[in-house]
Simulated assay, not measured.
Amino acid sequence: MLNDTSVPEFILLGFSEFQEFRFLLFTTFLTIYLFTLLGNGLIIAISNLDVSLQIPMYFFLSNFSLLEMCYTSVTVPQLLGDFLTGTHAISFQTCITQMYFFFFFGTTEFLLLATMAYDRYLAICHPLQYPMLMDSRTCACLALSCWLSGFLTPFLPTAFISQLPYNSSNQINHFFCDTSPLIKLSTGNTFMADMMVFLVSAVVVLTSFLLTVTSYVLIVSTICRIPSASGRLKAFSTCASHLTVVTIFYGTVIFMYLCPRSGQASDMDKVVSVLYAVVTPMLNPIVYTLRNKDVKIALKKVVNQVKNTFLRQRRDVVAIPVLS
């Protein structure tokens, strides 16, 4: 559903005020983007290659890493292209599509974080029933539900925004097509679009946040009842990495929604959005490799396997007799 707008394309202003530093910014964002893809891709590979990590916790982590790769790929390639070409132009259809997928992956991320918190709750609070409650079929259904719900949720907000008239300014003071700057740019009545975005966002964020907080309240309550200090530390370490990611993710989102909508709101939104959409996906593999002992052990095993395979192939090549 696309509006017959007189604006054929939008201009993403992005960081045009730092035009003299565009090559430095290009290098910085490219480095972050590549690290995000490689780091999250490595987590997916390790979780599937190491048998000891083929458990529900790392199944959800693999989904989360794939989601982070998709999430950052919605915005960063467009931003890198703008830095190189300097055009900053994006068609109306592409802009609406980018907004939809950003909403899609963001919603899925909220739901998946809540699901991962529920998984930790079952593992710590109901350890004996955990293998039965969280079997492979249940894991697949939960993950599929997160992706499907995230896919369906943006339809109504996107439909309302795409039907707004855009026949005045076509300059978006952002580095990607987000809901707020697009609605602000419209010359029509934006009440329904504003309300739809607000209601959908509130339901998704508050529901996932309450589920996550409830899970961790029950987890902390159970951990506090463990008699030994070593037992409490071991139980908490199983969810420390996920709790760190939750804190970073929700912290940036809450900060984004609490920003004052003054004349400089768009500039502040761009800065916070970099943390939310670019930096946070990069932190996921760092948190799970530095704070998770199982992942570090599995990573060493995979590296040693690759190293031994390479050395063995090299010895076989050297051992091949040379025909005269």
Rank of each mutant, 00 (worst) to 15 (best):
Gly231Cys: 04
Ser136Asn: 10
Ser145Asn: 07
Leu128Cys: 06
Leu185Lys: 10
Asp269Met: 11
Ser324His: 09
Val306Lys: 11
Ile44Gly: 07
Asp50Tyr: 05
Gln305His: 07
Cys95Ala: 12
Ala193Trp: 00
Thr75Asn: 12
Leu84His: 07
Val278Thr: 05
Leu258Val: 07
Leu156Asn: 01
Gln19Phe: 15
Pro157Asp: 03
Phe60Asp: 00
Val272Ile: 14
Gly251Trp: 10
Thr115Glu: 11
Lys307Gly: 03
Thr212Gln: 07
Leu275Gly: 14
Ile11Phe: 14
Ala193Ser: 13
Phe255Met: 15
His126Pro: 03
Pro131Leu: 09
Gln98Glu: 11
Thr244Ala: 12
Phe191Asp: 12
Ile254Arg: 10
Ser230Asp: 13
Tyr121Glu: 15
Met196Pro: 03
Ile219Asn: 02
Phe64Gln: 02
Leu67Asp: 01
Thr87Gly: 04
Val205Ile: 10
Ser73Val: 02
Phe110Met: 11
Pro285Phe: 14
Ile96Asp: 06
Lys296Asp: 03
Ser208Asp: 02
Phe249Lys: 08
Phe249Pro: 02
Val217Ala: 12
Met268Gly: 02
Leu84Arg: 13
Leu24Thr: 13
Ile161Phe: 13
Gln93Asn: 03
Asp267Ser: 14
Val306His: 09
Leu111Phe: 04
Asp82Trp: 09
Phe15Pro: 02
Phe21Gln: 10
Ser221Ala: 10
Asn292Leu: 10
Ile297Gly: 03
Leu79Ile: 10
Phe23Met: 13
Tyr121Ile: 03
Leu323Val: 11
Phe102Cys: 05
Thr115His: 11
Leu144Met: 08
Thr75Val: 15
Met282Trp: 13
Ser273Gly: 14
Tyr166His: 09
Lys184Gly: 01
Tyr118His: 12
Gly39Gln: 01
Ile223Asn: 01
Tyr216Val: 03
Leu206Arg: 11
Leu24Cys: 05
Gln313Met: 11
Gly86Met: 10
Cys141Gln: 13
Arg261Pro: 05
Thr280Pro: 03
Gly188Ala: 02
Leu299Asn: 01
Gly14Asp: 08
Pro227Ser: 06
Lys234Phe: 08
Pro127Asp: 06
Phe160Ser: 05
Asp4Trp: 12
Tyr71His: 13
Asp316Ala: 14
Val245Met: 15
Glu9Leu: 08
Phe209Trp: 12
Ala123Cys: 13
Pro321Tyr: 11
Asn3Phe: 14
Val76Cys: 08
Leu152Asn: 05
Ser136Leu: 09
Met134Glu: 03
Pro131Asp: 04
Arg261Thr: 07
Ile55Gly: 00
Ala265Gly: 08
Thr187Val: 03
Val272Asn: 08
Met1Ser: 13
Val278Trp: 02
Gly106His: 02
Cys146Thr: 04
Ser186Gln: 08
Asp294Thr: 03
Ile223Gln: 04
Leu38Gly: 03
Ser169Ile: 04
Asn167Glu: 04
Ala114Asn: 09
Pro281His: 00
Ala143Glu: 03
Arg22Asn: 05
Pro285Asn: 01
Phe255Ala: 11
Arg291Asn: 09
Thr36Cys: 13
Thr85Gly: 05
Ile172Glu: 06
Val197Trp: 06
Phe15Trp: 15
Val213Arg: 15
Gln78Asn: 07
Pro260Ile: 03
Met282Ser: 11
Phe110Thr: 00
Asp50Gln: 15
Leu37Trp: 11
Phe198Gly: 06
Ile223Glu: 07
Phe236Met: 10
Val287Asp: 11
Leu42Phe: 12
Thr190Leu: 05
